[in-house]
Amino acid sequence: MAITMLYFAWVRERVGIGEEVIDPPEVVRNVADLIDWLSRRSDGHAAALSEPAKLRAAIDQRFVGLDAELGNAREVALFPPVTGG
């Protein structure tokens, strides 16, 4: 099923785009799987996603751990740790 990917801050800069629609295979079950699969799409993806420990994620606009199952996710966001306030 199609998932809208969103990238923010330096993840967006390295990927080279802020948004894309993807259709990962069924073996991609959780966020960590997705990061691994996405990192092979382009050099930019590889540069942004090579160190998953530096990434945080949200599924359908809720913060989740990288072990979170994608389930029926429609929107997944990848970004660095937040620094607001």
Binding site: F63, V82, T83, G85
Partner: peptide, 11 residues
Amino acid sequence: RLKTDAPFWKR
């Protein structure tokens, strides 16, 4: 809580 629980990024 805002500093850790809201999706903002500073540059």
